[in-house]
Design a protein around this nucleic acid. Sequence first.
DNA 1: AGCACGCCGACT
DNA 2: GTCGGCGTGCTC
Length: 692
Amino acid sequence: MGAAHVDNESAGVSRATAGEQVARVLLDSPLPQLDRLLDYRVPARLAADAVPGVRVTVPLRSAGRVASGYLVELGETGEYDGTLSELDSVVSTAPVLAPEVWALARRVSERSAGGASDVLRLAIPPRQVRVEKAWLAARGSDDAADVTGVDVTGVDATGVDAPVRVEPGRPGAIRGYRAGRIESALSSGERIAVRAIPRPVRLPEDVWVGEWALTLALAAAHCLAVGSSAILIVPDYRDQEQLEAALRVVAPADAIVRVDARQANPDRYRGFLACLGVAARIIVGNRSAVYAPAARLGMIALWDDGDPLHAEPLSPYVHARDAALVRQEQQGCSLMLLAHTRSVETQRLVELGWLIDVMPDKTVTPRVIVTAQQASATGAAGAARIPSSAWKAATDALAEGPVLVQVSRPGYAPVVACRRCRQAARCTRCDGPLGVAAAGAIPACGACGAIAADWVCEHCEGTELSVVTRGAGLTAEELGRAFPATRVIVADGEKPILSVGAEKALVVATRGAEPIASGGYRAVLLLDGDRMLLRENLRVGDDCLRWWSNAAALAAPGAPVLLVGVAGPLARAMATWRQDGYASAELADRRSLRFPPAVRIASVTGRPETVAAAIDAIDADAVIDSLGPAPLDDGLVRSIVRFDYARGAEVAARLRAAVIRNATARRKRPTGDERFRPAPTLRVRFDDPEIL
DNA sequence: AGCACGCCGACT
DNA sequence: GTCGGCGTGCTC
């Protein structure tokens, strides 16, 4: 033993001795080489506070440098047989990393060749000291006030048919499905794919929501009544508003917790901390809510799992549905995927028997009428490209109440062309497409925004423009002319409207932005079907069916839903309201093409030799094939590998190892006068829905 | 990342 | 002889 050892001792470094606690810490770092647990000794001064889940700081490599992380677990002896450093501090006594959330983050990150701390960044909001102090101070008293003895006050959720009454003190039965079917699934940890009931429903105070929201709210209230928590995941805030309105009716306000990345940081952290208590809660939020801590988790539910907003855009890009499947398996809770349409991914799981299909007990379907694209004889309707049958339906319906018109594009006239030669009008600066933002506005470039004041056609020198693509604004204007004396309301992404009343009005909305109408729309016109289908994408069909179905579900019972200019399997699926049939056929197609979700894919992006090495590291017999490498910008390339689900773990492990190797490899030294550049990271992404 | 350790050229 | 240059490798 030399002097060095004595120095280490004085710096608080020594071997862990028997009986001493070892803290296993995950550093809060995106570096792949640090994505593992490091062992630290727990000094006596921290022994009381050093419990699993707390935020800690630890020395890293040298005593002067501290890194922050999470104390994941305590052990008697370290796995590491080197010399241990001591924990530097316990940042706060709030145990923000629940054991089950750690297990979830670990598994989810392994599956996707990503880092656990990247997942934890979604799971644990940034710390807010004031909020946390208030929570710690109140903790003791709050936990005593358990909210499991739910007082479900009389629900007056009046559908257009039978009104629902809920006896106080008991959660209301989930209506519209075989009695007790969903409740029994919830108590036995079943995984169910539930077809939502496509109609609006009235809550007290004349608030209207989709019946799906009431279904989810009642399911969550059922969990609460038996003392377990529920996590409800919705794609966007519009759905969140509806769901919360339904929840307020069936569950006590203090049991409902909003976990939403859109909230201000303090609110977000407050909501997060509320989930940590021992009391059961109903947790509502967007995709990252799937990682929320929850006492005695009874159910995870996703609304409309085909919505692309459920796909996480941050590394490691884990879809909320996939995280929910992992968590369901780990915790044995129930899983409910509720939607009007069936995503191909969910259909695959249904056909495997992994999810059980649950249908409403009696068929409630919108009255969908498929109409060929045929201009009406009537001048004004013709200008608004409404077929005569749709025109008549709209005219009749407008006598009674609101009519929804779904269009594909926001804005006014997003694409214009030369009136004389019909060539698309281009920006003189960047060659982007010219569009018109509002009635009478000067055309401007859709890409760079440059105003084209004195536009002259580059092909024929014409100076007049004509509309190629109608946006919601122009459609609204044309409809206003076609139906004089009718109020026209425009709802799109820029001007979102959540709800409209029962009065007569034409509501022109872009797909996905349709307001809910009191009592339901008296007619729904799906105008731009043909245009929506033009998008070049593997999943256009699924997306269109989802947009149309969700709009159709806003119709009043019996009201006509006119699907214009669409034929074939999609029109059939709408008319028969059998979106699962479409998904099943689509899945069969994907199987024959070996496309996701019939197989899994991973894309690998980086420098050519790094990508090649990563692909080579995967056993040849583990993959179906590998595509590429295809060149990208910056001298980077991307390869794609396809493989079966059974080989997923193996492929992910190999790719993860390649990522770590790349990160620790020596950086390229500056050659000549080239600037120093760190080695570009090797990026791996599994199951990217946009890739093929 | 960021920092310490290590092995070759100009210095009091 | 040593100070320090950046290249290399590791983080309990």
